[in-house]
Design a protein around this nucleic acid. Structure first.
Lengths: 101, 101
DNA sequence: TCGTTGCTTTCCATGTCGGAAAGAGTGCCT
DNA sequence: AGGCACTCTTTCCGACATGGAAAGCAACGA
């Protein structure tokens, strides 16, 4: 597809591009941290679906999930990693280029 | 996914979003018309793949293909329809919103 | 111990995607 | 007319992604 030449950092990132993950990254890019439930409700997906997408983002090294027990409740907060922010920014820049920013 | 509430024009357009089609629309949005072969080479896909994506865009009413015989050669030129431009613009606007323009 | 909360994982049916190859329409050449 | 080349189209096919439903699991309070 000639979107990202071999041997270069992919600009167009297939891990980030799918709608649910683009939304997740977009949300996380705007804050330091966001709780699992908040992301789930904002994106509008089920627990299982969010969990699966987050897993893919974690495996790509783009998101970090921190489990904590706060006020006797299990809470998972999500955050973009540095790599995640880099990849997201690059992807957004590439989207702008493709769509004629 | 709550990307486009029921009964409204979809902002986030699943027909346009996939990489190859986003590229095709991006190219066509910048010109009046572009030849099949030029789009194919620019996007970097095979004849069959481009043909299939164009077909989907045509079925959505977003792209119009005009066959003409020029200089003894069959030439297909592609262009965005008005609906196509509207949908593309809306999708791009939605991408900006999601990615925090 | 049981029930609840808050994810995670598995199972499954459906859909999408691209490559390869066969098809088909049109015009040129002999 | 027959054959060939050019330019897409369509079909076939295996690989992979995706979401919903449901079962699993760990932690904690009653």
């Amino acid at each position: 597809m000639s979107v990202s030449p071999a041997g270069t950092t992919p600009l167009f990132d297939a891990v980030i591009h799918p709608p649910p993950r683009l939304q997740i990254c977009g949300l996380l890019a705007a804050v330091d941290t966001m709780e699992f439930a908040t992301v789930r409700d904002t994106v509008g997906v089920s627990d299982s679906v969010l969990s699966k997408h987050v897993k893919q983002l974690e495996e790509a090294g783009y998101v970090k999930a921190s489990k904590a027990t706060i006020a006797s409740r299990q809470r998972t907060s999500l955050a973009l990693t540095k790599d995640g922010r880099r990849a997201f920014d690059a992807h957004v820049a590439e989207l702008r280029r493709i769509t004629g920013a």
